[in-house]
Design a protein around this nucleic acid. Sequence first.
DNA 1: CATCTTCCGTAGACAGTGTCTACGCGCTCT
DNA 2: AGAGCGCGTAGACACTGTCTACGGAAGATG
Lengths: 184, 184
Amino acid sequence: MRVGAALLRTEGPGVLSLREIARRAGVSHGAPRRYFPTHLSLLSAIARSGFADLSEQVWTALRAAPQDPRAQIKTIAERYVRFAATNRGMFELMFRHDVLSSGGELGLRDVSLPLFHLLTDLVAAARPASRFSARVTAAAIWSALHGTAQLWNWGSLTLATGATDPTPFIDATLAAHLGPEGRP
Amino acid sequence: MRVGAALLRTEGPGVLSLREIARRAGVSHGAPRRYFPTHLSLLSAIARSGFADLSEQVWTALRAAPQDPRAQIKTIAERYVRFAATNRGMFELMFRHDVLSSGGELGLRDVSLPLFHLLTDLVAAARPASRFSARVTAAAIWSALHGTAQLWNWGSLTLATGATDPTPFIDATLAAHLGPEGRP
DNA sequence: CATCTTCCGTAGACAGTGTCTACGCGCTCT
DNA sequence: AGAGCGCGTAGACACTGTCTACGGAAGATG
């Protein structure tokens, strides 16, 4: 099989054993070894494609969104959390420590960093005066997004607040960091 | 062995195979089965003890901290992130989806919910006027803390901002949600 | 005191896993 | 046409989690 990309529509994260993947691909259990020296490197490749997918979704959404910084930040935030909620298994795989630490931080450096820098610039343009640098604020927002996605995904936020939608938490985070919504 | 508690000082999360745990405990590989019907239930028990540990650390730190709401919130935040940084393997185990989803959400309901409600009350007392409910704000803060702990743990924040300490992100988050520091 | 039951651990089997090795088919290139 | 090699197969190995049958020690019961 060309890449593990064709196998990404894994129905669950439990099917990700090397032999099971090979089985679904219709090849013998030794075949993937030609392309990926180890099981983890296969998973890393799958996760990397997940990062690419996420970043592409965010970028295209950004192009379609209004151009003012605040709206762009909101678009990033919503896309990030929605991606996590829609592609649960993939999101979980993408942030598994063992997968992450192998493969040279996989997509983090190549995919997330440009996005993070964009976020930093947007934050610098959108936020009110603050004693924190735009980098720190952007990182805090990113952390909040990631935590929201994570907690939302396994239902903790629903359990704690009864919410049926994660957007209020996103809005609260952005409003806190950038000031109330509604003005340029 | 009485509980897996004695085995918690696991040097790494890779040693957590059932047989390896039994080996370190000096018993045969079938012995743990008397107490934990399945491997996952053993891990859940270990993770549960991790939740208990975390919550205890937070509560005792709260007792020693100044009593004004803002300082209490900061104490919770710092303890949470510090726990994650200090007990990496345990933190990771505690939030593994498969461990989480088994064992009836293990410590989440029993341990985290009281803490969350306390956080909600503190937020209600400490924050300025806002159009978001205290619940939502508290949940947003919690998400931010969790995300910070996670991203910090695998070095993303350092990679993105060059920071050597996670407290700036905590401070930025709290300042954003609760207003600048320094007043009652 | 003898016996029986119940707890708690052992030891072996089984299917399944990731990795490694030897093997062979079929293509391409000179 | 023949050699080389990319790409896949098949079997082995150590290891895993789960299941089962077995044993021995302790306490309860007659």
